[in-house]
């Protein structure tokens, strides 16, 4: 395989990181998905196993929603398509590197967090198989961060905003943006668990990974929040029957 290129790339990254540090920038690095083969076997299996109950719950949840309200399948397809689009757009960020969004916020808000796990897995499989982006061995870990942890946070924040009667669109924005950011925090945690630093253990390692991911992702999280609000406005205007079926409009504060 192209090991020479890999070494060259790695050396380049190392040099770039050094230069970036000198100039007070965060290193040119950020990772949405953990790369193929980069988690030890034990971790790969463990994260995979952790995901299974969520995926089963997601399947049941989708089945139940569609049985009760067959018409909402259009919105489900749309939420899935939204993940497809957003996770394929690589966007330049203030740190001088590119990253992409998750797009899982919309599905979590409309269908609940477990349902999104199914949509997320589809996208992650597509990227792992065709794009060599993420990976099959790290599928479990990536599913957990992008399709489970992120959506749960999104959903929680959305419900919280509803409870404390913040403007609905502000709630959607916060939920989607923070969920996106949290996905990266989980990725950092997963990498830190697998690669604890010798001096400071998991915590020190986590800080290191976070310092690399978070600054890149913040502007993207804001964009994701904005886009999710836009699509929600669109749906509120044109798809009220379906949103009613899903209970999105019920008891909402607008």
């Amino acid at each position: 395989m192209n090991t020479s290129l890999n070494t060259r790339e790695k050396r380049f990254i190392a040099v770039a990181a050094a230069i970036a540090l000198v100039f007070g920038f965060t290193p040119v690095a950020s990772a949405m998905h953990i790369m193929e083969g980069y988690l030890p076997v034990g971790f790969s299996v463990a994260w995979g196993v952790i995901c299974i109950p969520f995926l089963i719950a997601g399947y049941m949840s989708i089945k139940k929603t569609l049985k009760e309200n067959p018409k909402t399948i259009t919105l489900l397809a749309m939420a899935g398509a939204y993940v497809f689009v957003l996770s394929s757009l690589k966007i330049p960020s203030v740190t001088g590197s590119c990253s992409h969004m998750t797009g899982t916020g919309l599905g979590a808000i409309l269908f609940g967090p477990t349902a999104v796990s199914i949509l997320g897995v589809i996208v992650l499989l597509f990227q792992a198989i065709l794009l060599a982006h993420g990976g099959l061995t790290t599928l479990g870990a990536n599913t957990f961060s992008m399709a489970i942890a992120g959506p749960f946070v999104t959903f929680g924040i959305f419900i919280l905003c509803k409870k404390i009667k913040i403007n609905k669109h502000v709630g959607v924005f916060l939920a989607a943006a923070i969920g996106d950011l949290f996905t990266y925090c989980v990725t950092a945690f997963q990498l830190a668990m697998a690669y604890p630093s010798e001096s400071g253990g998991v915590a020190a390692s986590m800080v290191k990974f976070l310092a690399v991911f978070a600054p890149t992702q913040i502007p993207l999280a804001i964009i994701e929040g904005i886009l999710t609000v836009v699509i929600i406005i669109g749906l509120e205007t044109y798809a009220q029957p379906e949103l009613n079926d899903l209970g999105y409009l019920a008891g909402g504060v607008k």
């Binding site: 790695k10 990254i13 990976g135």
Partner: peptide
């Protein structure tokens, strides 16, 4: 504005001190 997702490996190498060979 390099390809971002591959770069996490750089930090892994930095922490482990050796170059990590993906096993898959």
């Amino acid at each position: 504005f390099g390809g971002s997702d591959d770069a996490g490996s750089g930090v892994v190498s930095e922490i482990t001190g050796t170059e990590y060979e993906p096993w898959f």
